[in-house]
Write a protein that binds this DNA or RNA. Structure first.
Lengths: 124, 124
DNA sequence: CGCCTAGTTCGAAACTACTCGTATCAGTAC
DNA sequence: GTACTGATACGAGTAGTTTCGAACTAGGCG
């Protein structure tokens, strides 16, 4: 079991029991064309959809998704998603857990999340 | 003035006073990841937005948009949009006119068009 | 016929993205 | 200490995109 006790390295706001967020764009810095580009990848679309369908209350680790791909590939895609503003990543000890920035996305691009939820990898 | 009289080269359905459509995916062949990829380009996003904001009753020529780019570049982007299923193109004599597949998009991906409409090239 | 127009096709250069192997790091357990 | 774990960073190969110039096509006009 990993530690759930967070480390507040560069804690700025009031402690919310969660580790700090990795670098990501602010809400008003999120750009639609970036989101579009990042969601053009079936694997990334799958990641977001799985995250959305899982309980919103828990962040998920890279390995939770069960993709049969090298770790370096997965790191690459998660980083792309985070830098585009689609997900937040937090460091829980050894693990890096991801969660969709649901509120931010719904504020900036209402309807976008539903598109991902309705997506089907096979016949789309 | 260009001719508005259509040529029904491979007319299949009832004549609707329009020239035939250039090859494009059927509604159920349109794939979200393809749409996303094609709308990751600011120029293409601009094209679709301009088309949506113009009168829906008229298709627009390539030149109507007033982009200061070589014609081959524009051809490339319009083709990408058409092959992804975002626009329809019809050949009016010399001109090739484009129109957003509004109904198809709203059917398959409700909310998508609004994302493009709300987009701002500068800070949006 | 030649010329203009609106657009295509081809090809090449520059750039970007995806994939992955390898090396590495920081905790945890023994 | 060693080994394992969950992940990162670097670098290389491959593939795809963007951009554009140059050559071309087809229709209309004089």
């Amino acid at each position: 079991m990993h530690t759930l006790a967070p480390t507040y390295a560069n804690e700025t706001g009031p402690p919310d029991e969660l580790p700090e967020r990795l670098p990501e764009p602010a809400v008003d810095e999120i750009r639609l064309e970036r989101i579009m580009g990042v969601l053009a990848e079936p694997l990334r679309l799958t990641i977001i959809q799985k995250l959305l369908l899982s309980s919103e209350d828990f962040d998920q680790t890279c390995g939770w998704f069960g993709f049969d791909r090298p770790k370096s590939t997965l790191t690459h895609h998660f980083k792309a998603l985070r830098e585009a503003g689609v997900i937040t990543q937090r460091q829980y000890g050894l693990e890096r857990r991801s969660r969709v920035r649901l509120e931010d996305l719904n504020t900036r691009f209402p309807g976008l999340v539903d598109l991902v939820l309705d997506w089907r990898a096979d016949a789309g």
